Amino acid sequence: MALSNNVIAAISFVAMLLSIPIIGAGIWLATEPDNSCVKILQWPVIILGMLILKVAIAGFVGAFWRIPWLLIIYLIGMLILIILLACLTIFIYMVTVRGSGHLAPSRAYLEYRLDDFSALASPEGSKFV
């Protein structure tokens, strides 16, 4: 049992370290020029990073000091975060699936705007309604 607690503590510690760049990315988005994607994403990214940090701290403390109720909170919190990240991935796919990206100057990738997205206007619109 001690080995599994050490593994959970190590994974939680890595999650704590990885949440810091997520929070930093949200703060960086807040300093960028305003467009629709930045306005929508800056606070959710910061909140997601903070939630990952809090859940990882609960998992680390629960595993390190063997507190079962903290480990239960950690497992439920991670399940909720995984579901939220899956929803975010589906949302990003829905916005970019039509391929309506615009060329951005000096960028190797296409720029997408939320104004171009409409579930009703897409050829597959009936699937999303």
Rank of each mutant, 00 (worst) to 15 (best):
A10T: 13
P33C: 01
P44S: 00
I11Q: 01
G77E: 03
G49C: 03
V129G: 15
A10E: 03
S19M: 03
L53P: 14
T96V: 06
M1T: 12
L29D: 01
I92K: 08
P68H: 02
L3Q: 09
K127L: 04
S36Q: 03
S106Q: 08
W43V: 08
F64T: 09
G77L: 02
F128N: 05
L110M: 11
I46T: 11
I73W: 08
V38T: 12
I72N: 10
M78A: 13
P68N: 06
G49N: 02
R98Q: 08
M1R: 10
M16I: 13
G24N: 00
G99F: 05
L41A: 15
V38L: 05
L18F: 12
V95Y: 03
F91T: 11
I47A: 07
I11L: 06
P21R: 00
A56C: 04
L85F: 13
D34L: 09
C37M: 08
V55D: 02
E124R: 14
A119H: 11
F13L: 07
V7Y: 04
I52D: 04
Y112Q: 07
L84M: 09
K39T: 07
C37I: 13
E32F: 09
A63R: 00
E111R: 14
H102N: 14
L110E: 05
D34M: 11
A15N: 07
I73P: 12
I47G: 12
E124V: 13
V97F: 13
S4G: 10
Y109N: 09
G62A: 05
L17A: 09
R98K: 11
A63G: 05
L85K: 15
R107M: 05
Y109H: 15
I83K: 07
S36G: 07
F60E: 00
I46M: 10
R66S: 15
S106D: 08
I20E: 04
L103Q: 13
I67N: 02
I20G: 05
L3I: 15
L41S: 15
I27K: 02
S12E: 00
A119Y: 06
P123M: 01
F60D: 01
I73C: 13
I92G: 11
I90W: 02
I82E: 06
T31F: 02
I80H: 12
R66W: 15
I8T: 10
A104L: 10
S106E: 07
R113D: 07
L75W: 02
A119D: 04
L85W: 11
I52T: 12
Y93D: 02
V55S: 04
E111C: 14
A104W: 05
G59N: 00
K127C: 04
I72V: 15
I11N: 02
I47T: 15
S12W: 00
I52S: 06
M16Q: 09
Y74H: 12
L81D: 01
Y93W: 06
L41F: 14
E124F: 14
Y112A: 09
I11F: 06
V7T: 11
I47D: 04
R113N: 10
G99W: 03
A2T: 13
I8S: 08
G125E: 04
M50E: 10
P44N: 00
I73V: 15
I76V: 15
R98T: 10
G125P: 12
M1S: 14
V97I: 14
L3Y: 11
L48T: 13
A63V: 01
L3T: 14
A119F: 10
G99T: 08
L17E: 04
